[in-house]
Simulated scan of single mutants.
Amino acid sequence: MKAFGKTIRLFLVDGTANGLMTAELSNWTGIGVKVPRIKIKEYSNRSEFQKPGVYILIGKGENNEDAAYIGEAEIIAERLTNHIAQKDFWNEVILFGSKDKYLNKASVKYLENRLYDLALKAGRFVLNQNIPTRSELSEAEQAELEEFLANIKVLTATLGHRIFEDLEETVDRNETQQQIFFCKNGAGAESKGSPSTEGFIVYKDSIFMITEQASLSEGIRIERAQMVHDGILKIEGDLYILTKDYVFTSSSRAACATLARSASGPLEWKTAEGVQLKYYEL
């Protein structure tokens, strides 16, 4: 199905990116709001905070990993006040409500559960919560809320957090860019990946070298060590195995991490037929 363009209107309420920001889509009754934690008290009397909606608390976990809490409330301001007192990890919130009376308790419960599912599937953030229950709604109601959900997903990414976006969605699947590329050597390393809008995705079960060569940069040594610490790289015999899809900022960084040495991604990544990535990027 062809994807159509969207018009998004961002409004900085106090004229800076450090205050409250609203996000709206043309021909949509919903509205998104992003606000720092320290500004919530200042803006909590606004209408967006006094209605039913869903919200995402965003911050860092104990190991500096991206962390989030997804919730719902009939009056968002009251719930956020409780979270300020009880939850310390977050530093900003993105909330979504309706400019009319479209959302109610049942619909926001449904959205909360579905947003949790999407975030869990994407695997980009650690979720600090239990699984939310889902409301029982008619098929028609669910269809309407799935459209509302799709807009929440777009606006959350626009507001700077791809918590709901699966890595596979960042891969260009047009006719010239749907190739899978491989990076390997004679010592057992063999990774599989694809270019993406965020850099380069290396897929689960790819095999990395353990022994690092002197040419490997310090930054990639640190990233690999963090991946081992987080369980993303797991020792299997004399090699590492990748336990989940992982995005590197460039194809060269992905190749270096795989081969544990200095490497050029456009040259090292090749199709099954041996065609180098650089010929697909030109």
Rank of each mutant, 00 (worst) to 15 (best):
S264Q: 09
F96T: 05
N174V: 00
F181H: 06
E141I: 02
T249E: 06
L259Q: 08
G265M: 11
I38Q: 13
L159H: 14
E281N: 06
E141S: 13
Q50W: 06
L145K: 07
K87E: 08
I235L: 08
G160M: 00
F89L: 08
W90P: 01
Q50V: 05
F148N: 12
R162H: 10
S196R: 07
D172Y: 04
N130P: 01
E198I: 00
R162K: 13
E236M: 08
I58L: 15
C256W: 01
E223N: 14
N104V: 02
G5N: 12
A23H: 03
I220E: 11
G123T: 10
V275M: 04
R114A: 14
T156E: 02
K34P: 05
Y203G: 00
E92R: 06
K204R: 14
S194C: 09
E268G: 13
F208S: 07
E190W: 09
E281G: 01
V35C: 11
N64A: 08
E72W: 06
T170H: 05
K51W: 02
D245W: 09
T211W: 03
M21L: 10
E78T: 06
T170I: 03
T29D: 12
A17K: 07
L20W: 02
I210N: 00
Y69E: 03
Y240C: 06
P195E: 02
L127K: 08
I163M: 02
L95H: 11
I70A: 10
E24H: 05
S107P: 05
T158K: 13
S196C: 15
K51Q: 09
Q86R: 15
S250N: 01
P36T: 13
G188E: 01
K105R: 11
I38A: 12
G61Y: 02
R134E: 07
N82I: 00
L12F: 15
T133S: 15
V202L: 07
K105C: 03
D230A: 15
C183H: 08
F164Q: 07
K184Q: 14
V202W: 01
E212F: 04
S194I: 04
K41W: 01
L155Y: 01
V228C: 08
A214R: 12
E169A: 13
L233K: 09
D205Y: 09
I163K: 00
E190M: 12
T249D: 04
A257F: 15
G123K: 10
E268A: 15
A77V: 06
